[in-house]
Design a protein around this nucleic acid. Structure first.
Lengths: 202, 202
DNA sequence: GGCCATCCTGACCGTATGGTCAAGTTCAGA
DNA sequence: TCTGAACTTGACCATACGGTCAGGATGGCC
């Protein structure tokens, strides 16, 4: 197997196991089983458990950041924030494991990616705040606190991944259907866009 | 030491350690150190680590449910949902560890409290949905999907506890001040209540 | 075929962890 | 003061875990 394939296979298995069991609860043996590889083989590609974990988290952060591009390409709050919500909801749907690993990492004080929070995430956040403040100054949305608006966007969209099990249970133990996902997206967009006075009409 | 005091002391230490390290990452030795008790003493009151964890999670669920009472005592959406947001934000502020333990438990598939999700939480949710549907029928708020509205309330309020570390980092590595907490509450209430057409005016 | 770098893996090791236990200590009540 | 139930704890044990390693397999290239 080529190095690239092997690493991708291991990273995928690791993401799943870390999401389900947490860093402490995950074992290299279990990750190896999920990847159908001997445990020693994992240590050939990733020297330590922590190193493997670090790469999983970094991969997630990249996906996370990509969704941000949409924000900038829009020329107004209804379009920009609406598209951002769509993108993040789609990530919650397609990469729930990654979202969970990220959530657990942050919940435990971000021991591994604290530097990302302080640099990349801080810069990204400040950039978006500037955009939102411009929209507010232009009278295209209500004067809400941009920072708390961003927190609300993150919280609401990631909730569908991080608390997916709870939502599924409350949905009669069935995963959300396509229609239900659409309804979720529509409701989130409707309430938030309406809540900040950024309807398509404005 | 009386049984009650000892158990409360251990539960408090356990909540802290489980929140910071997760179930797998927490060790009985560390919990014992935080509680300033010998490890063997923990096993006198709580036979196993899993048993101790279970009780921690159950305690959190109780606090969680208490905040729900406010919902019912209100006679309209602006008052009811507003008070519920206040109550849950206050819980995020006062019991962030508990919120984190709960989040981790659900994220990992609720291995310990699945039965609570299926019984108590399902009943509670259905009850609140009925209330919201009545408000909608009475024209006191927009016809949003009550289920997704509840998810949004949970997500937004609990985010301030679960992702408190991220928020603190983005706040210049400082905990939110009293004024900032008030601003957070006000923003959440404003956007959501406005978003569902439940202003005080209506 | 011969060579070499890369890849693979069963067997092994030191350590840390959850849990046990037997020998104490404390203290309320008779 | 005596008794016994509740509580405390240092020492100990079996297990499971992360990580190592030496020897072997593979495959591209001359």
């Amino acid at each position: 197997m080529r190095r690239q394939e092997a690493e991708a296979l291991i990273l995928s298995a690791a993401e799943k196991v870390f999401a389900e069991a947490g860093f402490g609860g995950a074992t290299m043996q279990l990750i190896a089983d999920v990847a159908s590889l001997p445990k020693a083989n994992l240590h050939y590609y990733f020297p330590t458990k922590e190193n493997l974990y670090r790469q999983v988290v970094q991969n997630i952060f990249q996906i996370w950041l990509q969704a941000a591009d949409i924000f900038d390409q829009a020329d107004g709050p209804a379009e920009g924030i609406g598209a951002y919500i769509d993108a993040k909801m789609e990530i919650s749907r397609r990469h729930p494991e990654g979202s969970k690993v990220w959530a657990a990492e942050v919940m435990h004080g971000a021991p591994v990616i604290q530097d990302y929070l302080e640099t990349t995430l801080t810069d990204w956040t400040n950039g978006r705040i500037a955009v939102i403040e411009r929209w507010i100054a232009e009278g295209r949305m209500d004067p809400v606190d941009p920072r708390h608006l961003l927190y609300m966007l993150w919280a609401t969209t990631q909730h569908y991944a991080d608390f997916g099990h709870q939502i599924e249970t409350l949905n009669g133990a069935s995963p959300l259907t396509d229609a239900q996902w659409d309804a979720a997206k529509a409701n989130v967009k409707r309430i938030i866009l309406n809540g900040i006075g950024a309807n398509d009409l404005s």
